[in-house]
Nucleic acid binder design. Structure first.
Length: 800
RNA sequence: GCGAAGGUGGCGGAACGGCAGACGCGCUAGUUUCAGACGCUAGUGGUUAAUUCUCGUGAGGGUUCAAAUCCCUUCCUUCGCACCA
């Protein structure tokens, strides 16, 4: 078969007849969404194929089941790589991105997937980012966008902010200079306002268990309390989950970045504190939280007051305390916390035991127990003491119960060019003023110097930056930063159904009908960020009244990663990349997609193997020969009843299993079941018209998995196109009823024999049957049967 | 370091308390062919003369009539960790 000609023929036919397009007016919608891609290289790589092709087969399966399937495609086109590429080559990000998109779009079209091309979108087009900016303004108006100081990676040599990815071993990837953390004013989205609902909502989602767990841990809810340690006119507030150990506090630690540090440090400690702060600014959070690394810290010279005992408590700074978690301050209870114990040992701080328990209570004792050495709280259990102490603190105005989340607000400012400009104007009189909605989009200027030299690229563009304040009309300047690309991707699924609307970001009526997404497919690496941001944006828009659903993605699937044949991650530098173009050229797109589905467990992925794909090519040839046989058998009567029964069983078993497997993205077993049917069809004979009928159904079951091939076979068998307008075959359960079944016989749980019995037997009859079987009789011998376990249709286990 | 997964034949992978290795690659034999390729048929975890016994799901322990599957310990690998997307 000339697959090139066949693929071209059907791609054109589908396009012309609108076979793939979504019926906006129809009901029974099914929204299948694959995570859109970043147009980084110029070519579609195998990973894209692995994401899109099997997901498309799922979409086609749903279509054949009668759903009105909406499967859009687009590009997440802003981002760092295009800008880095521009710095290196001088090619403008807009030019390289547009060129990459054009290539990828052509390749995606040749894949033969049923994308609804009329909804295509690019996040870098002004028609799209106008609404990204609109989204920012809505969040701002509702108090969900705000500015605060926050640390960034700063390269003192390049004089610029650099991404985490560009920090290699604490050094700048470009120039090798040591990176320091520097505070800058940044925009944040208040995702923490939704922490509780984001956590609760997880219960309603049909998502992989591991993803739910990861999000849960990422949000990191912990119940505890706040405790205030007064220090002159200031208060140091700490968060703790172990308020019961409060009387064991021997010091308080502030994060080196804590705002109080400068104020409270005494002159004689100033030098060591400053030195320590510089050292801490060079360590990553991951290093700082390591429990194996030796603890470091310095004394500030200051003392705060214990809220209950009134004793003086020394205040230290240490990098194991993070400014971004809790209140940026912790109380040190060496007797009952491993890190505090290590810290106190090293610096000679007091270790006061205030909890005891049964058994081994060697310090640090971190288990729950009974309070001691704590005055009025002595004798209480840990949970009782937590309550009592926090209650007492509340009365004194020095703390109380508090729920804390690990989740931090979402930093959305980027000091870069290639992103959506932040629609804010800074005015000396009026402060931060939102750009009026009618002035959107704030267009990204083309002629910009984006070489890194200490300034946001947009700040150097006078025509962009200098504007009049929309409020007072005085000279003002635009915000020079752009938005994190995660902002663009946090709402694109809302734009797709109405992607050409120039009056609003989406039509609320339409969106309430189309959303949530019924099946979302993409990489597991997005578990905590993209997927959480999208959920937050959906909930925020709901509360503003723009939509009426709570969650954007009802059901989620992650595909695995295809590795190089050496088992390593594919990369140009390793030279182990597989170019799908060559494979499509040699085998055709159906064979490539079928192999991707058959050769791997979809959620796991694995190393690429050249031999496997050839076998799929042979498999389709095998099916093609079957079709030709079936055409010849069409008018013949059924002459072999036994084989006919066998064929009916195989056919209906295949239909049943494949339908189930397609539903769960278990493509490898779905293909295996089709291969089994094909094997059976090669074995049987004398099935006549039943054979032809079976073949027709086989082609339909295969259609979502090998669309061009199936369409061609369907036509060859004399049917009018398109096969995707046909119903998916349904299983005739009556054909699956068997008269006899072979079951295993175990004696003392060891496999000993097999026997074939009628399926109609009751448990007692099976027992009788088994015990009277001569071979089994012999195996049992003179021993007596103690117990008889019968699992119907599978096995019996005779304990003697 | 913290969080999340995963270790099954020569290989990709099935099974997810009930006959381990479905399906495929590879390999072996037969068949077709002038020959090869292709196709078709059969076999294929180790061990063995033998469906003969036995051993086998990273390692060690446990629960159970029964464990790849559940529990504990341990080793190894992969992914994420908030400015890559």
């Amino acid at each position: 078969m000339d697959f090139k000609q066949v693929e071209k023929k059907w791609n054109e036919y589908w396009e012309k007849e609108g076979v793939n397009s979504f019926d906006k007016k129809g009901d029974n919608k099914y929204y299948v969404l694959e995570m859109f891609s970043y147009p980084s290289g110029s070519n579609l790589h195998l990973g894209h194929w692995y994401n899109y092709a099997p997901a498309d087969s799922f979409a086609r399966f749903k279509k054949m089941q009668g759903y009105n399937v909406f499967q859009p495609m687009g590009f997440d086109a802003f981002g760092l790589p295009a800008e880095n590429y521009a710095i290196k080559t001088g090619i403008h990000p807009e030019d390289s991105t547009k060129r990459n998109i054009a290539t990828m779009e052509t390749q995606l079209r040749s894949m033969g997937a049923m994308f609804d091309w009329s909804s295509l979108l690019y996040t870098c087009s002004p028609e799209y980012y106008k609404w990204t900016q609109w989204l920012f303004l809505q969040l701002y108006k509702h108090g969900l966008a705000y500015q605060k100081q926050s640390p960034v990676n700063w390269c003192p040599s390049c004089n610029t902010v650099i991404a985490n990815e560009q920090v290699v071993d604490g050094k700048c990837e470009r120039c090798g200079a040591e990176i320091v953390r520097k505070n800058m004013t940044q925009w944040f989205f208040k995702i923490t306002d939704y922490a509780e609902e984001l956590l609760e909502g997880l219960k309603t989602l049909d998502w992989p268990e591991k993803t739910l767990t990861m999000q849960k841990n990422w949000i990191g809810r912990s119940e505890g309390g706040e405790v205030v340690f007064p220090l002159n006119e200031d208060n140091i507030t700490v968060f703790t989950t172990r308020a019961d150990t409060l009387m064991g506090v021997s010091y308080v630690v502030l994060a080196p970045e804590h705002p109080l540090v400068d104020k409270i440090t005494t002159p004689e400690c100033r030098e060591q504190v400053e030195k320590y702060k510089i050292a801490a600014s060079k360590a990553s959070d991951i290093d700082r939280l390591s429990t194996v690394k030796e603890k470091t810290g310095v004394f500030t010279g200051a003392y705060c007051t214990h809220p209950i005992s009134g004793e003086k408590v020394p205040v230290w700074i240490a990098d194991y305390c993070l400014a971004t978690y809790g209140t940026g301050a912790v109380m040190g209870v060496p007797a009952h916390d491993e890190r505090d114990y290590e810290f106190a040992k090293k610096f000679g701080l007091d270790i006061k035991q205030v909890i005891t328990g049964e058994g081994d209570t060697a310090l640090p004792y971190v288990e729950y127990g009974t309070v001691i050495n704590s005055g009025r709280f002595d004798g209480l259990s840990t949970p009782e003491a937590k309550k009592a102490i926090l209650c007492y603190l509340k009365e004194k105005g020095l703390g109380g119960v508090k729920v804390n989340y690990r989740l931090r607000d979402w930093s959305v400012s980027r000091q870069r060019y290639w992103g959506a400009p932040i629609p804010i104007i800074h005015c000396d009189c009026c402060g931060a003023v939102p750009v009026p909605e009618e002035d959107l989009p704030v267009r990204l200027p083309y002629d910009v110097n984006f070489t890194p030299d200490g300034q946001s690229p947009l700040r150097k563009c006078d025509s962009f930056i200098n504007v009049k304040c929309p409020k007072c009309g005085k000279p003002a300047h635009r915000d020079p930063d752009t938005l994190d690309t995660f902002v663009c991707s946090s709402w694109y699924y809302l734009r797709y159904p109405d992607s050409k609307n120039d009056k609003m970001p989406f039509d609320p009526e339409l969106i309430n009908k189309m959303l949530p997404v019924d099946k979302y497919i993409g990489g597991a690496e997005h578990a905590c960020m993209h997927l959480l941001y999208s959920r937050f944006i959906t909930k925020a828009l709901r509360d503003m009244g723009y939509l009426k659903f709570d969650e954007p993605f009802r059901s989620l699937i992650h595909q695995g990663l295809i590795l190089g044949s050496d088992g390593e991650k594919m990369s140009k530098s390793k030279g182990n990349t597989i170019n799908p173009d060559f494979l499509v050229e040699e085998y055709g797109s159906d064979v490539l997609r079928l192999y991707l589905m058959f050769g791997f467990s979809y959620a796991d992925g694995g190393p690429w193997n050249d031999d496997g794909i050839k076998s799929i090519s042979k498999f389709l040839d095998r099916v093609e020969r079957l079709v030709d046989t079936a055409i010849a058998e069409k008018e013949k009567p059924i002459s072999n009843a036994k084989d006919a029964k066998e064929l009916n069983y195989a056919l209906n078993y295949c239909i049943k299993k494949v339908s189930e497997d397609m539903e769960t993205f278990s493509f490898n077993t779905a293909v295996a079941r089709i291969m089994e049917l094909v094997n059976t069809m090669y074995k049987v004979s004398g099935c006549g018209s039943l054979f032809t009928e079976a073949c027709e159904k086989l082609i339909r079951v295969l259609a979502p998995l090998a669309p061009h091939f199936a369409e061609e076979m369907h036509e060859r068998m004399g049917f009018t196109p398109s096969i995707f307008k046909c119903e998916y075959p349904s299983c005739d359960e009556s054909k699956l009823v068997r008269d006899e079944v072979e079951i295993a016989v175990q004696i003392n749980s060891k496999m000993r024999a097999k026997m074939t019995i009628p399926t109609s037997l009751t448990e007692d009859e099976i027992k009788e049957h088994a015990l009277s079987d001569p071979k089994i009789k012999e195996l049992i011998g003179s021993a007596s049967v103690k117990k008889f376990i019968c699992i119907k249709g599978r096995l019996v286990n005779i304990i003697i």
